[in-house]
């Protein structure tokens, strides 16, 4: 074949190929359903043939694109929980999916239950991180106003190293809401002692004041 003929043919064929790619792109309809056929992590683990980490990374990228396209689109995330739990099944030490799942599932997808399931797995993998129990507590309180279920988680978070002071005072506030004034007082005093921030000190003092005056009322009421 003449070289010039070959090159000319190549240009023509490439143009045609490009056109067909474009045409085929319009048929994208099974995209979302494709996640449906991912088996659960239990089966995916052996199927990954030792490349769990790489597979979980790829699924993570898939998660981001899945989230991105739905965030810009319908705002529905039916497969987000499934794919996130696959990632942590494959690679439980991969920490970012826990944060992502804990926050996005609860705030953006309104699936607080699923968010907490992911976070509970996070606590299993990283018991020393205060964020995971904190988010669980937050989800309970924010979505349901369920201070009683939130308090033990926030308390747990407060006891873990690295947790900021406001968490401790938050424990106090929650116990106060539930009516466990004695426990609340204990946390407020502790927080008051430990913080050096004048503003927080002031706020805590107000809370302590509130509890004490409530107790007095209670006592005089007898």
């Amino acid at each position: 074949m003449k070289k010039r003929t070959v090159i000319l043919l190549l240009i023509l064929l490439s143009a045609a190929l490009w056109g067909i790619q474009k045409k085929l792109d319009q048929y994208k309809s099974v995209e979302v359903e494709s996640l449906l056929y991912l088996p659960s992590g239990e089966y995916l683990q052996p199927l990954s043939l030792g490349y769990q980490l790489m597979l979980s990374d790829m699924l993570w990228i898939k998660t981001i694109t899945y989230f991105g396209s739905h965030f810009m689109g319908d705002g529905e995330y039916p497969w987000l929980y499934h794919i996130l739990s696959l990632i942590i099944d494959l690679d439980p030490r991969f920490d970012f999916p826990y944060y992502f799942g804990g926050v996005v599932l609860s705030l953006e997808a309104a699936q607080a239950e699923n968010a907490n399931k992911i976070l509970a797995r996070g606590i299993e993998a990283y018991p020393e991180k205060w964020e995971y129990p904190f988010y669980i507590g937050f989800n309970h309180y924010y979505h349901r106003g369920d201070a009683a279920r939130a308090a033990p988680y926030i308390e747990r978070a407060a006891k873990l190293p690295g947790s900021p002071e406001f968490v401790k005072s938050l424990v106090g506030t929650l116990y106060m809401k539930v009516g466990a004034d004695e426990t609340a007082l204990k946390f407020f005093r502790e927080a008051h002692q430990n913080t050096s921030d004048a503003l927080i000190k002031k706020k805590i003092e107000i809370k302590i004041e509130e509890i004490l005056s409530r107790r007095e009322q209670h006592d005089t009421g007898h």
Partner: peptide, 18 residues
């Protein structure tokens, strides 16, 4: 279109090989 896509791709690759 998918089949056509495959055929075109094959032709292009074979021409490069040539």
């Amino acid at each position: 279109f998918s089949i056509l896509y495959g055929l075109l791709y094959i032709m292009i690759v074979m021409l490069f090989a040539v």
